[in-house]
Amino acid sequence: MTRNDFRLLHRLRVRWAEVDMQKIVFNGHYLMYFDTAMADYWRALALPYEQTMHALGGDLYVKKASVEYHASARYDDQLDVGLKCQRIGNSSIQFVGGIFCGDQLLITGELIYVYANPATQTSLPVPESLRAIFQGFEVGEAMTTCQVGAWDVLQASAQAVRTDVFVGEQGIAPEDEWDAADATAVHAVLSNRYGVPLGTARLLQPEAGVAQMGRMAVTRLMRGSGFGHQLLEALVQAALARGDTEVRLHAQRSAEGFYKRQGFEPYGEPFDEVGIPHIEMRRSLV
């Protein structure tokens, strides 16, 4: 087993509280590491777990969890936890895992889940749609689609995400979130394979050759999986297609690092917008 066997690798550092009197990671924590990586696996599938299970009418229950120890991890080691969906039966799903420190394999593991009725905990067939998503991910298929278009086409999906993130999570007043610019903007909506919207952004043109990007939002459970990058690049391509030479945006200061990694640079002094610290950022397209 090597790192290359896994499409999903979750990185973590060993914390002091996870080391035992032998100065190595206590054996039981490796199962926690696999479980932590499983949350990343669901993000990589673009599936918010609870919402997805509720929609499908079932849930997953652990039937078996086994760990084999080859070497020990120590305090502050940087580990990569790999998970792969190995087999899907009628009602069971088998995952295999490996925990690596660099290229050294420390731990191998197996997790078997049973898909079941949450009320009776009796097994159910794994839905074909979910089976296809697992299988598609493991062979490298995309888990999301990004649609770019007008407000009258994407309004319902974009509103759902922005209401969740800006109004519900950040406490922005609804009257400050919605404006007339939505009607003329180019919008992007990122959705998973079930058509559930996970992120959105919009593009205005305040002056010739300038694109103004805004209302960028990704739902909380899906952050950190590259979905913001997909949205941003979809709108950059839209700006290029209409001949814009520069993209500008008002970034929340907490997201400034993200935009810097996407090629944007700060411009001017920080300012408040709807009570949240912002800074203007710009990216040349020429």
Rank of each mutant, 00 (worst) to 15 (best):
H229E: 15
T219H: 04
R261G: 14
P270S: 13
G214F: 00
E246H: 00
A201D: 10
V218D: 04
F264S: 09
A208D: 01
R223P: 02
G268D: 11
Y259L: 07
G199E: 07
G209D: 02
Q252H: 13
V247W: 00
P206R: 09
S254G: 13
R202G: 08
E269C: 08
S254L: 14
A255F: 07
A239V: 08
G268N: 08
V236M: 13
R215C: 07
G268L: 13
E273S: 05
L203K: 10
Y267L: 14
T245G: 03
A201K: 11
V210S: 02
P197T: 02
G263E: 01
L203A: 08
R215K: 03
E256D: 10
R248E: 08
L221M: 03
R202W: 11
L221W: 09
R242F: 06
L204A: 03
G214V: 00
V218E: 09
Q262F: 03
S225T: 08
V274N: 01
A255R: 10
E265R: 15
M222L: 08
A234C: 04
R223A: 07
P197H: 07
R248L: 14
G268P: 12
L232M: 10
V210A: 05
A211K: 04
M213P: 02
V210Q: 04
Y267S: 12
S254V: 15
A241W: 06
Y267Q: 12
P270C: 15
V210N: 04
Q230H: 14
P206I: 08
R202M: 08
F271D: 14
V218A: 01
A238Q: 10
E233Q: 13
Q262M: 14
P206N: 00
G214H: 06
R220P: 00
K260I: 11
L203N: 06
G263L: 07
R253F: 04
M213F: 00
D244R: 01
T200I: 01
L204T: 11
F264Q: 06
H229A: 14
A211M: 04
Q262H: 13
Q230S: 05
G224D: 10
F227T: 06
L232S: 01
V210C: 09
R253T: 09
M213N: 00
G214N: 01
F271Q: 09
A211Q: 05
V274E: 05
Q237V: 04
A241D: 13
G257K: 05
E273Q: 10
E273F: 04
A234G: 06
G275H: 01
A238D: 01
G199V: 03
P270T: 14
L198M: 12
L221V: 14
Q212K: 09
E207Q: 12
K260N: 11
A251P: 07
F227S: 05
Q237D: 07
G268W: 11
Q237F: 04
G226T: 08
S225N: 11
F258T: 11
Q237C: 08
E269T: 13
Q205P: 03
R261I: 09
A255Y: 14
V247T: 04
G257P: 06
H250I: 00
L235F: 02
L240H: 02
G228I: 09
H250R: 15
G228H: 05
Q230P: 02
Q252V: 06
V274K: 00
P197Q: 02
V218S: 04
Y259N: 00
Q230K: 15
M222C: 10
L240R: 10
A238P: 05
R253K: 06
E246F: 09
E256P: 09
Y259T: 10
K260A: 10
A201F: 07
G224S: 08
A239L: 05
G224P: 10
L221S: 14
